[in-house]
Design a protein around this nucleic acid. Structure first.
Length: 569
DNA sequence: GTTCCCCGCGCG
DNA sequence: AAAGCGCGCGGGGAAC
């Protein structure tokens, strides 16, 4: 266990029952070397307040750890999990509910004009002193031992904690990013980089075309409300300025306007400013936030890691002599649903191939597109359009799978809580929601209150319907990455001359995780290790399937590619 | 002047 | 077509 104490850090070895075996005090400068020594000799599970606060400095010193117990992330899970019979102790310890923000935005400080906030100076921190750390560990062990499914929860807590290590490592390593290629893509789409403050040439041209077509030289293209009024004046009857609605209209202003909006999006979200801010020395290092989404998915904070547009994928490029090994899971969420529910027909439809094609071959729908829209409707609670038409057929042919999501929706509509496969529970409804449901039943309820409450209930039902599947898919993905990470860690270092410099001391000599996006990983590997890395990715996926769904026939096929440059797909 | 919310759009 | 879930971000503009 690591805990802070006056002037340094306390390193404590704990036994299986939590008893102290030995303890040692260190000044902070000794920490990295002491931790490295202990890791090499014992390979322990490190208990600490918060990986995001401890691990980056260890990584910077060249130290990696195999496993940890992240008290902050574990606390959030145990505190809310329905599987924990008596979470009162965890609920009381509210300092452990510090928000999952890994850092504050850039702020002004005294000496340096602008200084990036570091994990160590975050405003809301969980307690990291030795006594507080030990006390929280003890509460968590008590809660876990008394839970209804300790073995599943243990898997979840280990996977979540591994995710905390992975997130820090991903940020430390970064994904190799070809700045020249990014600039080429921007220049091709927008024109050459303009001087700061002025728009690029091709946006100026498109804007001029829009204004000419609307017969209004002053149309403000970047203000939706004002643009909307200008469109109305030109006789274009839209209710918003969104692209899908504009596309339905035939007017000479529409085409240049859509082009303008595309360019504007690219420029503001991932233009030269973004490149300057987020890519350094050939590495894009976004900030991942493990557990940042209620379902257990990761969020990101800064850098937009989870929204890198396809258009810019070719800027992901391996270092010379290295490869990108990319893998994404085909139809992860439907497969997870099939496995959770044990729906034999759905498992068969996905066996060894594209699940949507399997649904077509089973004669349930005519086209792959119909299958996809129908399955997404089942997961998200779609009731209208094509998905509304297909869902009843799926309900008939995949009764177990549909019963699981329909049941989760019904629970949510009643104000209940649902829980993922490994034990992460959905948040309780807000007080206002419950009050609205209660008052809607009263005789003197105002007109429309019943309908409003009903709609809120259905909204919540769609959320809980999706929660069990999205959350379990996140658990699968964490297990996948955790297994993959351990496998890559056993790869032998390549010779010095093959090293990839910018990946830092830890990741420059062997294959390492470089990017993660819900159901996709990218490994950056020396060319000589690329095949082995691809193999490890597939093996880790198989292992994750067996770990979560032992004995199930479900499989998780991957789309695997080895290349120098990421493809647009 | 700062803060917050909405819009629109990128991702899974 | 873009519905039905989960996000983050930039920009505008109203609210404070």
């Amino acid at each position: 266990m690591l805990g802070r104490e006056d002037g340094g850090v306390r390193l404590t070895a704990l036994g299986a029952d939590g008893e102290t075996l030995w303890t040692q005090s260190l000044v902070s400068e000794q920490l990295a070397s002491a931790v490295a020594r202990c890791e090499a000799e014992h390979s322990p599970r490190w208990v600490w307040s918060d990986a995001a606060a401890w691990y980056p400095s260890l990584l910077a010193a060249g130290v990696t750890l195999e496993r940890c117990h992240d008290l902050r992330l574990v606390h959030r899970i145990l505190r809310h999990s329905e599987l924990v019979e008596d979470p009162a102790l965890l609920r009381a310890a509210s300092a452990w509910d510090a928000p999952l923000e890994p850092h504050e935005p850039v702020r002004e400080t005294g000496q340096a004009l602008f200084e990036l906030d570091t994990a160590a100076s975050r405003s809301a921190e969980v307690p990291s002193d030795a006594a507080g750390t030990l006390a929280e560990l003890s509460r968590q062990r008590t809660a876990l031992d008394a839970s209804r499914a300790p073995s599943r929860l243990r898997l979840l807590l280990a996977a979540e904690s591994a995710g905390a290590l992975i997130a820090a490592e991903l940020q430390a390593a970064g994904i190799p990013w070809d700045e020249a290629e990014h600039d080429r893509i921007l220049t091709e789409a927008l024109g050459p980089r303009p001087s700061p403050g002025s728009p690029p040439a091709r946006m100026v041209e498109a804007g001029a075309e829009v204004r000419a077509a609307l017969g209004d030289p002053l149309v403000p293209l970047d203000s939706p409300p004002r643009l909307l009024r200008a469109l109305h004046r030109a006789g274009i009857d839209v209710s918003s300025t969104s692209q899908w609605e504009l596309m339905e209209h035939d007017h000479p202003a529409i085409d240049p306007l859509l082009r303008y909006k595309k360019m504007s999006r690219l420029l503001t979200a991932n233009g030269w400013t973004w490149l300057d801010e987020w890519v350094h020395e050939g590495r894009y290092r976004p900030v991942y936030v493990p557990g940042g989404v209620v379902t257990g998915r990761w969020a990101s904070s800064g850098g937009g890691a989870l929204q890198v547009p396809r258009q810019l994928r070719p800027a992901m490029r391996a270092d010379p002599g290295w490869r990108l090994v990319s893998a994404d899971v085909s139809q992860l969420e439907p497969r997870v649903l099939a496995a959770m529910s044990g729906d034999a027909a759905m498992i068969t439809a996905g066996a060894g191939k594209d699940l949507y094609s399997g649904i077509v071959e089973a004669g349930i729908v005519a086209t792959r597109q119909e299958a996809k829209v129908g399955v997404l409707g089942a997961l998200y609670g779609g009731t209208t359009g094509d998905s509304g038409r297909v869902v009843p057929r799926l309900r008939q042919r995949f009764p177990a799978a549909m019963a699981l999501v329909d049941g989760a929706a019904a629970t949510g509509e009643r104000g209940g809580t649902v829980t993922t496969w490994l034990g992460r529970s959905s948040p309780a409804p807000e007080e206002a929601w419950t009050a609205a449901q209660r008052s809607a039943h009263q005789v003197d309820a105002p007109g429309g209150a019943a309908e409003t409450a009903r709609r809120a209930a259905r909204d919540r039902g769609r959320f809980t319907r999706n929660f069990v599947v999205q959350g379990t898919a996140a658990e699968w993905a964490l297990s996948w990455m955790a297994a993959l990470r351990l496998a890559l860690d056993r790869f032998a270092p390549v010779p010095e001359q093959e090293a990839a410099g910018p990946s830092g001391p830890v990741f420059s000599r062997r294959a390492h995780l470089a990017f993660f996006l819900h159901d996709e990983v990218i490994v950056h590997a020396p060319a000589s290790q690329a095949e082995d890395a691809a193999h490890a990715i597939q093996e880790a996926a198989d292992a994750a399937g067996r770990l979560l769904f032992p004995g199930s026939a479900i499989d998780f096929p991957l789309d695997l590619t080895i290349s120098e440059r990421s493809a647009q797909k």
